[in-house]
Nucleic acid binder design. Structure first.
Lengths: 356, 356
DNA sequence: TTGAAAGCGCTACCAG
DNA sequence: CTGGTAGCGCTTTCAA
């Protein structure tokens, strides 16, 4: 004790259970029990302790506790991208859900050009109770490392085909199919697809559902542009290319809303009208999609549901975080009709009335 | 030891320094030293340890370490709002800066209707190295609690007048003044202000700078609308009210970009043109501000600079996080000219060419 | 340079 | 119901 004093003095000394107990003539163990809801303690004693704790600003050191309980109450959330307005929506919902279960979010933003694998090791040092990976792809090696360390991992809005990791995902194939269906119902015959990040499952699946269903309906995909990123700029330039072609598409399905918004701006810059000349459909339903200049028809991702499911499979409200079964959970999105798709059945179609 | 075995067996046992040492015929202390850059250790020994650590997936438990060093390497970031696109911009920049110094972000989203004071206690349990509070107001009581616990606190994009807490802030007064100046230069005579969250210093200061400078220039403030929130909807409805007045303003300064965007949509919905009928200026410079339907003239907040300053006063790159001097640091924003303000000097003015 | 030992603040067991 | 005590995994003395 005296040996350490020298160093300890210079360091921050917060109120400890021992100190608090001493002031009350109680043992440190008893103080600890006052903050547990399983240990037995006299209600009056607890009250005295809680009261004194309040006035001294004492709260049990969670980190010390976690050393014993092996529970940090920390959930790591890994994200690559906060610029796309879809992800703040996700993070907001996710963080609130996590916090409402008494857990906390340790946030990892993956810098551009870096990979999840680069941050995962430093993440593992924190002994988090679970890892949620969004908008980023995890390697099989890292999945193995997490499994070895017994850390539950859930991929959110992503999955890795063939990798045994739990995933919560919007049913992007079904979403793509619904778009194809809708474009068929509204008598479009030259639909194009503009993709985002090339290898993202979100991109791949939306494209697949879309083209598959088109094929079933006997409609030829007029063009498949590669955006390369889920960004406004990617949507803009891809649409611009499409519009300059001798034979234009009569409709474009963009891999995300922000891309679609960029696309609409490009179409208009080319002096064409949406939806009269070209119909546009997006994916996500971010707030901007409903802004008057766009009024974008889109597939809404069921974020609340996806977050709910994440909480369920990890057992946020259970006493212990679970290691989720390693399967992919798909949740259906819904098509939100606004004003960027017109019915081409009659030449002089009226624009659909706005919804939502 | 044997007593605990029973429980311990059921719990996750990760690789520890002791285990690693045993495998190498070294003591636990030596293993610990291999991961310190101050302790003296034979380079060869260190190499052997690091190598074995790698193959076993061992990394020192930061939480156990923090018990002794009193450094968690965790910075708490408190935010009320992720929906306003300005804050994801801030969080992205902040998180990357924090991570690049080897620190981590513990994120706290304040649920609607709740107050910072409600989450701060649970935050303090984590013994974070510093607390960054954005888009939320801290009470003097809580500031005192943090001070007592010796936790450095920095307010980001907010300050509390009269409260001795360090703050990093865009110079909103100067920003408001610049807008007044610009509107005067372009010969506007009936400027209006649309405020956001009523008591936010960001709102108050922008309003004050704006009206003060107008007064100095001998221009009467035509109207001061209370939005109540920095939201699209608030901007829309406030502008709608303004536009329905018998005598319309010739220009509106909105407390934020998203409000301004809402305002533009409202103005156009009333069959008026921006900027021909009404000029519009925003604040923040979010990505949407430059989208073609808006091309919003606005005051850009120097986020990168603000983050840099935050890192500096807290000493992120220093061995120890500092308790920053409790003063307010103001950083200048810059006016970005786009196309929502016209020069009314000549009746038939040409719209200014786009910049940026 | 290394090992032994103390102890960070806490929980969980054992007696009483 | 309470106090004593043994560690959780680590850093940091002190001695060798």
């Amino acid at each position: 004790m005296t040996k350490r004093r020298k160093t300890a003095k210079r360091l921050v000394r917060s109120v400890t259970a021992e100190l608090l107990g001493k002031r009350l003539g109680l043992s440190q163990s008893t103080v600890s029990r006052a903050f547990s809801n399983v240990a037995s303690i006299h209600p009056e004693t607890r009250e005295r302790i809680i009261k004194e704790a309040h006035s001294l600003g004492y709260r049990p050191n969670i980190l010390a506790r976690s050393l014993i309980t092996r529970r940090t109450n920390i959930i790591a959330v890994v994200m690559a991208n906060l610029i796309d307005p879809f992800y703040p929506l996700v993070l907001d919902e996710l963080a609130q859900r996590i916090q409402s279960s008494g857990l906390q979010v340790l946030l990892f933003i993956i810098p551009p050009g870096k990979h999840v694998d680069d941050v995962l090791p430093s993440l593992l040092q924190y002994k988090v109770d679970a890892i949620l990976i969004t908008s980023a792809t995890v390697s099989s090696r890292m999945a193995a490392v997490c499994a070895a360390q017994q850390v539950p991992v859930v991929l959110f809005n992503r999955y890795v085909p063939g990798l045994k990791v739990a995933a919560i995902c919007c049913d992007n194939v079904a979403g793509g199919r619904a778009v194809a269906e809708y474009l068929n119902d509204t008598a479009h015959v030259r639909p194009a697809y503009v993709g985002g990040e090339r290898d993202a499952t979100t991109n791949l699946d939306r494209a697949r559902g879309f083209t598959e269903r088109l094929q079933e309906l006997g409609i030829a995909l007029h063009a498949h542009e590669v955006g390369g990123a889920f960004s406004y700029a990617a949507g803009y330039t891809a649409a611009d290319r499409l519009v300059r072609q001798p034979k234009r598409p009569d409709s474009i399905f963009f891999a995300s809303d922000v891309m679609a918004v960029g696309g609409i701006d490009a179409i208009r810059a080319a002096n064409l009208r949406v939806p009269e000349d070209i119909s546009v459909i997006g994916f996500d339903d971010v707030p901007m999609a409903s802004w008057p200049p766009y009024e974008l028809t889109t597939v809404r991702q069921p974020i609340a549901q996806m977050v709910y499911e994440t909480a369920r499979i990890l057992g946020f409200d259970k006493p212990a975080i679970k290691n989720p079964s390693r399967k992919i959970h798909f949740m259906k999105g819904i098509l939100i009709e606004r004003n960027t798709v017109t019915n081409r059945r009659r030449r002089l179609s009226l624009a659909k009335p706005a919804q939502a």
